[in-house]
Simulated scan of single mutants.
Amino acid sequence: MKYRTAAVQYKLADIDTFDQFAEQVTHYVRNASEYGVQFLLFPEFLTTQLMSIGDEQGNALTIDRLPEFTDSYLDLFRTLASEYSLYIVGGTHVIKTDDGSLRNAAHLFHPNGKIDVQHKIHITPSEVEGWNMSAGEGLEVFETEYGMIAMLTCYDIEFPEIVRMARAKGADVIFCPSCTDDRHGFYRVRYCCHARAVENQIYIVTTGTVGSLRKVDLMRANFGQAAIIAPNDIPFPPAGILSEGIINDDMLVVADLDLALLEDVRARGSVTTWRDRRTDLYPDWQ
């Protein structure tokens, strides 16, 4: 099976209304539809742009106000996924759980209106200290018309165990929305994406925010680049990069994912890292 995927290098800028956010998101979806994509990935924390709308005094909204936009966020992306007949990983949006805690949640919008959610499992110190974010408690993989996928957000990709679990559950593609503010953070995520692709013989689609929210603390600087990454083996480009963007530019990155090639390299590749794992020593905890 083969399908086309795209990732958005989403340019953050201060806005005044939700409609402005919706217009920008819709632009990227329309652009992707012109390329005939079946999957589209937005970056982590793209809805922090809504915090720049501000309160009555002109101050940026605080993070605990962001869940107020959840219904509008869900309606927007659900409508776009249906209208353009594609799967959309709507980046991440901060939601409030029943116990009142804040979670950073990735959402998969299906063309038929279904919505799957994966809470970020590993939380960075800045998310805890700056925004009082809490960690998700489990990993799911999600069935689509084009096979099984998982959504692991930014810091999650830096933990080999959780990606190994996703592959053991059947995921062939990991969508990794990210948000990093400098080169150090960006390259941590990017290098780990390549490592996870090699270890598990999977595709990883990743992207990050670019631009700046001048009103919003912790979002004043962004360093990002989208990439569609494959295992480093002969059927794929030598560097394992199917496509990548121009760093910190506002753009869309597109590539085709051939799932049959993954099966080929798992069975007959130059190395067979998935087949040769030592589950007697380090089991695939599911």
Rank of each mutant, 00 (worst) to 15 (best):
M1V: 09
A6D: 01
A7W: 04
V8T: 06
V8G: 02
K11R: 14
K11W: 11
K11M: 12
L12D: 12
D14E: 11
D16F: 10
T17Y: 08
F18S: 00
F21V: 05
Q24V: 08
V25P: 04
T26E: 15
H27W: 09
Y28R: 06
Y28D: 05
R30K: 15
V37D: 00
Q38P: 02
F39S: 03
L40R: 03
L40H: 02
F45Y: 11
T47F: 03
M51A: 15
I53M: 14
D55M: 05
E56C: 07
G58I: 08
A60M: 03
T62Y: 11
I63D: 01
D64L: 05
D64C: 05
E68Q: 13
D71V: 06
L74E: 15
L74I: 12
L74S: 07
R78V: 00
R78I: 01
L80F: 10
L80Y: 09
A81Y: 05
E83I: 12
Y84M: 04
S85G: 05
Y87T: 06
V94W: 05
I95R: 13
D99N: 15
L102R: 04
L102N: 03
L102E: 00
R103N: 03
A105G: 01
A106K: 06
A106G: 14
H107D: 09
L108A: 05
F109C: 03
H110V: 06
P111F: 06
K114Q: 15
I115R: 06
D116T: 07
V117E: 13
K120P: 02
K120Y: 05
K120L: 07
T124Y: 01
S126D: 10
S126K: 09
E129M: 08
A135N: 09
G136E: 02
G136Y: 00
E137V: 11
L139T: 00
E140T: 11
E140V: 05
E140Q: 15
E145Q: 14
E145T: 14
Y146V: 09
Y146D: 13
G147W: 06
I157E: 07
I157W: 04
I157S: 04
P160S: 05
E161N: 13
V163W: 03
V163H: 02
V163D: 03
R164L: 12
A168P: 07
D172T: 08
D172N: 15
F175T: 07
S178C: 11
T180A: 08
D182Q: 10
R183C: 03
F186V: 01
R188S: 10
V189E: 07
Y191I: 10
C193Q: 04
A195L: 12
V198S: 08
V198L: 12
E199K: 10
I202P: 00
V210I: 15
V210H: 01
G211R: 02
L213H: 06
A221V: 07
N222M: 12
G224T: 06
Q225K: 15
A227W: 01
P231V: 00
P235V: 09
P238V: 07
P238E: 14
A239Q: 14
A239I: 07
A239K: 15
L242Q: 08
G245D: 04
G245L: 06
I246R: 14
N248T: 07
V253Y: 02
L257T: 01
A260H: 11
L261E: 12
L261Q: 14
E263R: 14
E263D: 15
V265W: 00
R266M: 08
R266S: 02
A267Q: 14
G269H: 02
G269K: 03
S270G: 11
V271S: 13
W274D: 08
R278H: 13
D284K: 05
